[in-house]
Design a protein around this nucleic acid. Structure first.
Lengths: 342, 342
DNA sequence: CTGAAAGCGCTTACAG
DNA sequence: CTGAAAGCGCTTACAG
């Protein structure tokens, strides 16, 4: 591999001049520039990223931190990884995947190595030790998701509050007054600290109350089998509910299949809206579910943008952004039944 | 951030000695070692990865190259990303995600930058321009998947040949003699060059012939809607088929649902084995499909191992490995019906 | 507009 | 066992 010095020699200029030419960091006469460019071309020269990083103090590498034991990988996660990696590339950065357990210590291993210019954190808990660790360090970071207290923190998150309200409105507008919110995880203690679940539950409670609706909450495993179990539990314990907010995408096909098995017709008896999922998954259920689509691509893109902004201008106002879910109607929402028929 | 020089100063030894201590690259007296370790601890010293990389000529960064416009992201891909990243970490490497279009030029942009020690290539085509590009360069690489000609190339791949044969055997053992292979992609021209599809088709053709079975091939979109269309096409054009090898995981729920709609019972009328998919996806269909599980975790792990082996010992025999799919029975396989009933 | 030189944080012959 | 020094490939004041 040719070095900058090789280029300088061939072009009969100094090393510095080659650098100035490449980086446009100082004026270079067009004659010199032409010589340098020819030499670079002849040698197939490419700037070495490591030498450059050491001299600049910038590696142009970002890390994407996420739990190694991801409770469940949705296609949403992949879309997210990919859009983040893509946006990083577009902006001249590289994205390193950094799976880790929830210990805060692994964070400092990363930030202290000097390998990365910034950290993007996924799957944020309301009270996240990793965020505390990052906040104490010198490496810029941004969150996908958000902690309870977002003061001084850059983040991009789904606007779960608005999303849940939106779903409730869509159901109540069709006459549904008795709703259930179904989320993932085995019990509330496990996921109680997980932002999306906590925020959805809170909003669901507040909005149903405020609108004079009846609302209850169920939790199940994030699998089709979990969905079947949920359907049986639902049939047994919530005979009067006609509207479901399903924030547990992987359980959807099983939930719907089992509901039909126990005698419900969808959407004649029960209307269902899947929340923060994708059309890909929603269409695996039969009928295809209405879904408020998690803006995975956008989150990845905006997350990277927020992080780079943080890196470039440490004093500018903090990027904090909530992103909306878009709606895909599917075939799982209808008017509330006049009278429950089983 | 403290540097090695800071540590040396505090410990009253030379920079070199600190390096020897950290890397165990030369004998150091236990007394000196203690001094250095204390200084490191007091300063919270961490070796700077960039300085180290420049001096060693090794960055300990690997790149995972994959198509930016992935035709469809399976949960298998995520598992794969994650297990690769995890294994890289375990072995002291970092994994950079490098989404790219299929142009070979983007490959050299990566390898010439000096940022990565090796490249792992996903979604390999039978004749892949990126492989040609990599083979011409100096950066070690390994494939997940394989080209037509694997001479001189390290790879890890699913043993599709054995997998398809396995599926055929499982069906023919139950009396099925008339089979269809369903794969993804719109037409054969699009996916004809894609290894898994090509190998599955070849093997399917050979084995059915050899066993005296009737075999035909269908292709559809990799979505539930595509699956529904496939089911209708299947019912219309293959009335005598009783066994299906489905290598198109995302179409599975729609395929099964629509089959039932047009009057088939599963597995009474039709037996289905999903190939190179996951239990996660297979269980989204109702009934849950039998599946030959794509060993995504293993591929990620072995791919990274193969690559690192290639980096460490450029002369050793090339790692080339085929990995088997394991079988999960599901509820979609039964004996061939005596007489077709619709 | 161009160049000589110091420096980024390490590693590693070489010498002792 | 320890250290002084060169060098990895670049960037950037500083001087001209």
């Amino acid at each position: 591999m040719a070095t900058m010095q090789d280029v300088a020699n061939l072009a009969n200029v100094s090393l510095a001049t080659v650098s100035f030419t490449i980086n446009n960091s100082k004026p270079v006469s067009s004659k010199t520039r032409a010589k340098v460019e020819k030499a670079m071309k002849d040698l197939g020269y490419r700037r070495n990223a490591v030498g450059s990083a050491l001299a600049r103090g910038r590696t142009h590498v970002l890390a994407l931190l996420y739990p190694a034991l991801q409770h469940r990988f949705s296609s949403t996660s992949v879309r997210f990884f990919t859009s983040a990696a893509h946006q990083a590339r577009l902006r001249g950065y590289n994205l390193v995947l950094w799976p880790m357990s929830n210990e805060a210590e692994a964070v400092s291993e990363l930030t202290a190595s000097g390998l990365v210019d910034g950290v993007l954190l996924m799957e944020v808990q309301l009270d996240d030790p990793r965020v505390v660790e990052l906040a104490g360090g010198a490496v810029p970071f941004a969150l996908i998701g958000r902690t309870r207290d977002t003061k001084g923190i850059s983040f991009v998150d789904v606007d779960f509050e608005t999303t849940v309200e939106n779903a409730i409105d869509r159901l109540s507008r069709r006459g549904h007054t008795n709703l259930v919110l179904i989320d993932g995880g085995i019990g509330s203690q496990l996921l109680g600290g997980y932002g999306p679940v906590a925020r959805a539950r809170n909003t669901f409670g507040e909005v149903t109350l405020q609108r004079g609706l009846v609302g209850s909450v169920m939790s199940g495993l994030e699998t089709p089998a979990g969905g079947r179990a949920l359907a049986r539990e639902f049939a047994a314990e919530h005979p009067d509910v006609t509207g479901v907010l399903l924030m547990n995408e992987h359980s959807a096909p099983g939930f719907v299949a089992e509901l039909k098995t126990v005698g419900y017709a969808i959407p004649q008896d029960i209307s269902i809206i899947s929340i923060a999922s994708s059309v890909d998954i929603a269409s695996m259920a039969d009928p295809e579910l209405a879904v408020l689509i998690s803006p995975a691509d956008e989150l990845g893109r905006l997350g990277v943008d927020a992080l780079i902004e943080r890196i470039d201008e440490r004093d500018k106002p903090l990027p904090q952004q909530l992103v909306q879910c878009s709606y895909s109607p599917g075939h799982s929402v209808g008017p509330a039944p006049k009278k429950r028929t089983r």
